[in-house]
Design a protein around this nucleic acid. Structure first.
Length: 289
DNA sequence: ATGCCATACGTTGTATGA
């Protein structure tokens, strides 16, 4: 069983790329973020044609999350079971049971800048997520919480800690919010299979950051112990961040349970050689950049 | 080269992103 998560930066704009990637990686379950669609605009028919059923939770121009699955989807919960209104007016969470795993697609707030109201709202949102997980967990159930957490858990998850220090995504409070999720028994499925640094899931569109590997690992799949024991592979598909049609600024992350999913070239080996060669010739982006 | 900001909304720009 292959579970994927991908911040698509508009499902409408990314439909063609998504269709290509579903064929390429053949995931069983896909957690999407930033669909940027209202529920009545969600492309259910197109997704059905690609072989998936979808549950979508959106509000329109911003945010929006979804779950795609090749098998039936039940027990859908949106917005922590609360109305899409204050204090949780943004569509950032949908959960469902599919393929025997309870999956949660999450899109954490950005935070914008340390100490801002948006930053405090980000921390409050993580508190709500942790509380909801505590309230709803039943024993050692198979659970996977995946999405765009907008937090790089460790310094090895960013291209340059000195450059990132003082900004969002790496602060002690944000990292403590993710650590609290780990304290609930969730483990980082990517790190179960990869210890190396310089593996990112997001790169800014600007300044050729992707090609310089100036990025952050901020998209994650966190799993309970019973799922962790089944993880046989996890990969970030950099190929999906390239080319035409225009890609999302995030790459998808896949986690394989029980047996490896469809093989695909994640594009890292060749990219790492090019990036290393370029770095040897020229130092990476300055800390003040 | 993989190749140098994108999206929606709305209207000739603005908000947002991380």
């Amino acid at each position: 069983m292959r579970i994927a998560t991908w911040n698509v930066n508009s499902l409408k704009a990314r439909l063609e790329k998504l269709a290509w990637w579903l064929e390429r990686a053949r995931p069983d379950v896909v957690l999407l973020q930033e669909t940027k669609l209202a529920d009545d605009a969600a492309p259910h028919a197109e997704v059905e044609r690609l072989g998936y059923t979808m549950v979508h939770h959106g509000e329109g121009r911003w945010n929006g999350v979804a779950i795609l699955s090749k098998t039936p989807i039940t027990e859908v919960v949106t917005n922590f079971g609360e109305p899409l209104a204050e204090p949780l007016p943004e569509a950032r969470m949908v959960s469902a049971l599919t393929g025997g795993v309870r999956v949660v697609s999450v899109y954490a707030p950005n935070g914008r800048s340390l100490g801002s109201p948006f930053y405090r709202a980000k921390l409050a949102w993580f508190e709500r997520l942790a509380r909801w997980l505590e309230e709803t967990r039943a024993g050692d159930q198979a659970l996977a919480v995946g999405g765009d957490f907008n937090v790089a858990p460790e310094d090895r998850d960013v291209w340059n800690p000195a450059a990132c220090h003082g900004g969002t995504h790496v602060s002690a409070e944000e990292r403590a919010a993710v650590a609290r999720l780990r304290s609930l028994g969730l483990v980082d499925a990517y790190r179960l299979r990869h210890d190396e640094p310089e593996r990112y899931t997001w790169w800014d569109y600007r300044a050729g950051d992707f090609y310089k590997n100036v990025g952050m690992r901020i998209d994650h799949v966190l799993v309970t112990a019973s799922v962790a024991a089944r993880v046989v592979a996890s990969e970030i598909d950099r190929e999906a961040r390239k080319g035409k049609p225009i890609p999302s600024d995030h790459a998808p992350l896949t986690v394989d349970l029980d047996e490896p999913g469809a093989p695909y070239d994640a594009g890292w080996t060749a990219a790492a050689e090019r990036i290393a060669a370029r770095r040897a010739a020229k130092p990476k982006r300055a800390p003040e950049a």
